[in-house]
Amino acid sequence: MNNIMSNHENGIPEDNKPWPELKLPELLLNSGTVRSLHAAIESEWDLLRRSACQTAAGRALWKQAINDPLAELFAGETHLKSIYEKIKKDLLNNAREISGVILAIRTLWFDSKLEAALSSFDGGGAQVVLLGAGMDARSYRLSCLKQSSVFEVDFPEVLDAKATILEAAANSKDKNHHPILTAKSLSRVAADLTEDNWLEKLQISGFEPKKSAVWILEGILYYLSHSHAMKVLKIIAENCNLTDTVLLADFMNKQATTLSSSTFHFYCDWPDQLLPSLGFFDVKLSQIGDPDAHFGLLQDPLNLFNKLRNLPRSIQTHPDDGTPCGRLYLLQASGSPNQTSS
């Protein structure tokens, strides 16, 4: 097995240890309610909505690095088996990057930056808003949220499905999957980010514009059109004029969106220049594999992400093989009414 799997201290199996076998939580996934719900998801939801379950599956299968016991329930059997087969194939072929590693690192980056942001606010207790929350379970797994009011914004059908799964888990005999809220409070806000009333709905649900807030946009911006993505970013930037604000978001460059031209729309090659132009300050950009976006999961120096990091960001195609230089940028930005442009 290659070096990517050798760092046991970071939750990755040692070379002589196989990838954990996929063991489905049969008691819950086979319950009539959860099974019929996931069947409906597969047949009725579009790609954007189903991506919530796919993200959960990635977190569930990278359990060596991410402790998210609810993820496999949110993912459903179809997505779990699909990604698991890809992981098995990658291991068999000694791939330099194992399927789902980018999602695992992205999750851990958002976790670590969220915790740091919350601890930076005086007295703690900042609000946390997850836009396009999907099947995110941070409110049930992160202790740093114990003083925070959390708001999950997503389509009503996604939030309804999530609530149904959580209720089934709470009533199950399977205590390993009982949901225990770690956040101070959790409000689910049924709203469409492409419509103009999502901020109003957020405020009706209890969000206080003048109270410090951390905004999480994980895996959502590139699904939006350019105009909708920019409008969302501008609304958050305007919040900087009212209170201390932290934005955590990931951006694709143009080459990355070509991987699925029918799915991904918004891109930004230089988000570290875009965000200051909107009113954010102290903008920090990371790429997968950087010291703060590594987590011991990318040991092979020749893996794709390390090769990309060694190339200037302006290069569009890889000089070795002519493949597109698709990049995922992780951005941390902040703002405050007391800051002025430098």
Score class of each variant (00 low, 15 high):
I4F: 05
M5K: 12
N7M: 05
E9D: 12
E26D: 11
H38M: 10
A39R: 08
A40M: 06
W45A: 10
L47E: 13
R49D: 11
A52D: 12
C53D: 11
R59W: 10
L61T: 09
W62H: 14
D68R: 07
D68E: 07
A75I: 10
I83K: 05
E85W: 01
I87F: 08
I87H: 06
D90L: 03
D90T: 01
L92K: 13
I98S: 04
S99N: 12
W109M: 01
S112K: 11
E115F: 02
L118Y: 04
S119R: 13
S119K: 15
D122M: 08
D122K: 15
M135R: 11
D136L: 04
D136P: 06
A137K: 09
S139G: 14
L142Y: 01
S149H: 11
V150P: 08
F151H: 06
E152G: 04
L159D: 04
D160S: 09
A161L: 00
A163E: 08
T164V: 11
N171Q: 15
H177F: 14
H178K: 15
H178D: 03
S185T: 14
V189Q: 04
S205T: 07
F207V: 08
F207Q: 05
P209E: 12
K210N: 12
S212N: 14
W215Y: 15
L217M: 13
G219Y: 10
S225A: 14
S227N: 12
A229N: 11
K231C: 07
A237C: 07
E238V: 01
T243W: 03
L247S: 09
A249H: 03
M252E: 06
A256S: 09
T257A: 03
T263M: 10
F264L: 07
H265R: 15
Y267Q: 00
Q273L: 15
G279S: 05
F281Q: 09
D282P: 00
V283W: 01
S286H: 15
P291C: 03
D292V: 07
A293T: 09
G296Q: 08
L298F: 09
L298E: 05
Q299L: 06
P301S: 12
L304S: 10
L311D: 01
P312H: 05
S314L: 04
I315R: 04
I315Q: 01
Q316Y: 03
P319W: 05
D320M: 11
D321E: 09
T323Y: 02
C325H: 08
C325P: 02
R327M: 14
R327A: 13
L330D: 10
Q332V: 06
Q332N: 08
A333T: 08
S334T: 09
S341M: 09
